[in-house]
Design a protein around this nucleic acid. Structure first.
Lengths: 188, 188, 188, 188
DNA sequence: GATGAATGAGAATTCATTCAT
DNA sequence: AATGAATGAATTCTCATTCAT
């Protein structure tokens, strides 16, 4: 979605509505989950439902758009961390960052596991961006003999996103601690 | 719990329907999740909706009934494993068993994290049975210096149940491997 | 219903259940109205629903049975009052008594006006008993020139039963006062 | 949303549906009472159920809307009658008018006494409009020594509305006659 | 005769999605 | 382009009534 073939310019009001929708969706996803009624989002954005459907015909289009920036930034951070740290340290820090992202944007982890066919497209996007980043970090650390080499990036990604889901009575600290435990298990 | 205070016998047909409902619910929970429409369950059971509501006025009553035996058996297995194995080994095996349970009865892990107020009662039951069992195993292993001592049974339980949730394209093998990784992280 | 062709004797337990049902129905009618769920009545009576349906196949059969004694007694009181009082005084006292009955047994007035076809039979019974009694009292008072002669007993009966219905925030005092006002209107 | 605060104009189709709903509701309330299934109303209006719920989220909103005009007109008529007639005559005529209203719009009197919590709001509205009107008429007539002064407008209002309920086999004539009788009772 | 389990037809309500304005 | 009204399928839950035990 970032580089569309035809860079059609958006009318000013259309762009404003788009932003309002994204902001509203982020809030509502965090508050009521990604299955929240469309009306809740459009009301908060001060926009008609029709406008939502015009911009995001599929529910997953909206979810994807909401988290796109964060996901891209997280993926890109892999390279920088590799340049600055030992492989094992880079890996740990990147997973911390990922956990941070998933635990903060609560709706995201949930959306990945909702099972709702409406979100079939989302995991694809997430994976296409994060999997190569994590793969490179894992390979480097494994080559360094710092961690075992039998864990695939895809499954680690899924595991971290599972462990980042909110749990009754529990805060982000719980998620962070459990992910750290998992990462400890990676070490030879 | 089967034969409490007053062991009033169930009429033959009632018992038959109850079984049919439990069987159907187990299938449907696995197929469509614990939020599946009541009708889906009663149709599969060949029974009217009213019958479901008679036996299980609350949705969580049904979920609880479906998983009750397995949960109880799992909790009870802790003692036997402690008697036969070293503390660390007993702990590992018990968590394997728990993972097996959660990964097999797919709906269960999902129900624990549904957030739906209808299931408020379920985590309470699960925790009241499993938490003491896991607590004992953790304490024994920690006393043995085999594992770190700063992980509470409650959070480990939640973490395992998170890691036991089904993930698209993935089988039970994934869940088992990730839990094993987490347990490896426990070792000092 | 008092003198059935075949005075079949009731089995002791059947008679006990019948009484329990009548008592329970009276309580429930007063508490939740005559449309109350059948289950509420049978539970209070400690009896199965089937038993209710055996004794009272139609809802109105039950309502009628519950109020039968009171209605009969009220109808019969007309003669005694006529013997002891002036026609106008007898009329006033009898209507007082009727109001008392309707205002006390709250469900009764409501049932008369529920409109539910299930109670088609009830007004018939009530009228067949009370209409002659009131008719005699009205005729006597009218012959005495104490009241106007253009009010039919049937409509007065309906009017009193309407004015005896419970009204939010209001007690039986309200009903009594309004009926008294209506009776005042009868005087020439 | 353009010019809110004030009377934002309804879209043409929305207004058409609203009218259809009000018309249908009036018919259905008269035919089946105010507890009639929502579907019955929407079918008659040729409209989806959702449309009913959009315009009238609460059942009482619909009932109120249906009777609002009539109630307002009736309340306002009090002043005009006071200007044109003697106090006693004005009172009588106003109550006639009220009876006319209640007896014609059959559902209204019933709704006032349904007891259903869904209508809690309705009596409040009715009272807030009619009670002051009747109060003024009563005070004037009492000051004139034409009627007794111990009857409160609220209870008279309730009594008239009770006497205006439809009774099987009976037409509006019955209701009118009985209310007239009650009013006769007011005279000293 | 009594019981209470089972049935299934409603009734209310919500919300994703379409489409007239 | 935006709006938000309309639709109606889907879902939950209740209860009168029947009937196997």
């Amino acid at each position: 979605m970032s580089d569309d073939a035809a860079p059609r310019r958006l009318r000013a009001d259309a762009a404003r509505n788009l932003d309002a929708l994204l902001d509203a969706a982020e809030v509502v996803f965090g508050r009521s989950g990604v299955d929240a009624p469309a009306k809740e989002i459009t009301d908060l954005a001060g926009v008609g439902v029709g406008t939502l459907y015009r911009h995001f015909p599929q529910r997953s289009d909206l979810v994807k758009a909401v988290f796109e920036h964060e996901i891209d930034a997280c993926a890109d951070a892999g390279l920088a961390l590799s340049a600055e740290h030992e492989p094992a340290e880079a890996l740990t820090r990147w997973i911390d960052r990922l956990t941070e992202l998933l635990a903060t944007k609560r709706g995201l982890a949930a959306a990945l596991h909702s099972g709702d066919p409406a979100f079939d497209a989302l995991p694809g996007y997430v994976m296409s961006r994060l999997e190569p980043a994590l793969g490179a970090l894992l390979d480097a650390a494994a080559a360094d003999r710092a961690i075992r080499s039998d864990v695939r990036p895809t499954e680690l990604l899924y595991a971290v996103s599972l462990l980042s889901q909110p749990v009754r009575d529990t805060g982000a600290g719980f998620n962070r601690r459990m992910v750290a435990l998992l990462v400890d298990g990676l070490r030879a």
